[in-house]
Write a protein that binds this DNA or RNA. Structure first.
Lengths: 219, 219
DNA sequence: GAAAGTACGTGGTTATTACCACCAAATGAA
DNA sequence: TTCATTTGGTGGTAATAACCACGTACTTTC
């Protein structure tokens, strides 16, 4: 790995070249080329590594059980992705990361970066790494919610939410941690309107449910 | 400060009692009592300190120019608040933090925690602290957006958005960084519907605007 | 400066949702 | 059990937003 390629990325900010070299080693930096359209991560994966786009670009997208595709964001050269998942290590990804063109990706193993540090370091380091864990966790919650509230119709929000649980629980039988009012609040819709839409979705053969147990029906 | 009071909070996770004492000193821990209803932070403030609720509870709320109040969240004993603002240090708060009952708050100076660390530490520490900055920044963006998209009507979203810029820019004349399409996307509404609502808001005397310059009218 | 393109706004229509009043089933306490 | 409370669902109506077609003004380009 050439230090020049990463010197200007945010993660290596404030490091001397020597430190960057040590960091690349310590983070088990490994480079890989992807062809346009190739999957870098798939929903359902877990990862201990974050990605840094050395050249090319990638898209973050969502493909749900019902076959709907949605592009969520682009990451250009110098940008990174999956840093939250990498840091937390065992969180299941809800999105796919796809090479938008022929691209070179540098993977950095950031899992345990916080815990590794915690054993040796001073209180400062421990505090910073605790705060990083907290922040990453909060991040995940915020982006999840914003993801489920961005579809404009109640049905699409429900499908987005159920799909994410489907990916996490790897089963078409899903237990949700909310009652109706809480689900409505989470999806930012009105409770009775949610009830109605759930009924319609059942009539349309998309789902069935009883209380907080939902089943995604086979099409 | 008694170490026992904070030993179980997430921030001091993994620290020995000795380290916690050092941390409390290093973070310039200071305790303060608030009476029910008293303001701990006000929108428009900046802070270099985060808050830890030692006893009692606080609410995070939003009070806009037009006099609407909205409660955003509660923080109970052992929980903390303003950690993102504290870490970033110069971000203007868009919400108020109010004591929900008689409460004891511990303030911890976390600004420069990352930059302080960066001067001395190894690459690990620098990487962790860079990641913390990135994460905090992302957090701020995500929570801002989710804040502006949670109102159910276009008008309320626009008011929420303009109000936040009003607080930041401290002026009723506001320049927004978006064109109409971008603003619509940001607020998660349809462009022409946004245009219509902006027109109605002008008719109703709430705002005036030309291109991306908006003025909040005096009531 | 003509032509093409972009940005913004308006009218009209339809789809969707919020809101209200209400009911039924499930839960829980006395 | 019985009564009260909580939780989930339905019907109907009004409000709201999405969607489409289109016009106008302002920009950019050659």
């Amino acid at each position: 790995m050439d230090v020049n390629k990463v010197r200007n990325t945010v993660i290596f900010n404030g490091m001397t070249d020597g430190e960057i070299e040590a960091a690349l080693k310590g983070l088990k930096a490994s480079e890989k080329k992807y062809e346009k359209g190739e999957a870098i991560f798939l929903a359902g994966d877990t990862t201990s590594r974050m990605g840094l786009v050395l050249s090319g670009s990638v898209t973050i997208e969502s493909n749900d059980v019902w076959g709907n595709r949605m592009i969520l964001s682009h990451v250009e050269e110098g940008g990174f992705f999956a840093e939250t998942y990498g840091l937390l290590g065992d969180e299941i990804m809800l999105v796919d990361v796809i090479a938008n063109e022929d691209s070179e990706i540098l993977f950095l193993t950031v899992k345990n970066l916080t815990s590794k540090v915690s054993d040796e370091g001073t209180w400062v380091i421990k505090a910073v790494s605790n705060l990083l864990s907290i922040s990453a966790q909060k991040n995940l919650m915020l982006s999840g919610r914003s993801f489920h509230t961005s579809p404009k119709t109640i049905r699409d929000r429900v499908m987005s939410y159920l799909n994410s649980l489907y990916i996490k629980q790897k089963s078409r039988e899903i237990v949700i941690p909310f009652d109706r009012q809480q689900l409505a609040d989470y999806l930012n819709v009105e409770r009775t309107a949610l009830s109605k839409e759930l009924g319609k979705m059942r009539d349309d053969g998309l789902i069935s449910f009883k209380k907080n147990r939902f089943t995604i029906e086979e099409t």
